[in-house]
Write a protein that binds this DNA or RNA. Structure first.
Lengths: 121, 121
DNA sequence: GTGAGCCTTCAACATATGTTTAAGTCAAGC
DNA sequence: GCTTGACTTAAACATATGTTGAAGGCTCAC
């Protein structure tokens, strides 16, 4: 069993995930990623950090807030396994589809409802 | 043919759409809705204003910005007809589904790509 | 053990999305 | 004609999502 290695610095994770170092610190402050500290108080991340950030950026595009994403990621254990990521993926997709369904439903209802925002296909 | 009537005040539209009067002014500033002015410089909206706002609120939930929504609504003529709303609805749904597809695609790709964010179903 | 290049925190700034408040205008009923 | 209530603009405030800059500390390769 390999112990989780917290070897990445802020700039490592920034480079791996394609965001600015300031964003990496921001995501840590808001619980999207977590870090341990070195004796000299520097952050060290494990390999899942860059992954969490990349997923978070895509999730933000479907309307999820950083807080909501952090809440969903709370289900990920330390050293997440593929199955853990799978459950998170399912949750994220369900949320995105739910919001799209709400949009479709609202737009569809417009068609039916009297003179209220009449709509046609 | 009925000429479009700009009869609603800010508070009328706020009540009809379920947002605060300040939000109605905000959406006008950002092009989500448009108004004419009375001789006394007060805003008057047509019946589509409350509808635009309600649709905008649902669209924001799938990640569209106010700017993006205003751009999509730019396709609506004065006194929009059901068919006009239908085209806007199609555009909004396509955008929402595109973003959800991007999320799914990204999460799905994670599964395949080596040791990069391994994921399993 | 030292210098270059990271890292730290904190505060200010920037943009998006609004709300609140202040000071003043306008319309309508009494 | 005066009061009342809704309207106007402008600025300040609030939250979310970051970026930038200053002042200083840590690490690693040499």
């Amino acid at each position: 069993m390999t112990t989780t290695m917290f070897t990445r610095s802020v700039s490592d994770v920034a480079a791996e995930s394609g965001v600015a170092p300031s964003a990496v610190r921001f995501y840590e402050q808001h619980g999207v990623i977590t870090a341990i500290r070195t004796a000299g108080d520097q952050r060290r991340f494990d390999e899942s950090a860059a992954c969490r950030i990349r997923v978070a950026k895509v999730a933000q595009r479907v309307g999820l807030t950083v807080r909501e994403i952090a809440d969903i990621f709370a289900a990920l254990p330390a050293d997440p396994q593929p199955a853990d990521w799978g459950r998170v993926a399912t949750t994220l997709i369900a949320e995105a589809e739910s919001r799209t369904a709400a949009l479709k439903s609202y737009l569809n209802d417009m068609r039916g409802s009297g003179r209220l925002c009449e709509i046609d296909v």
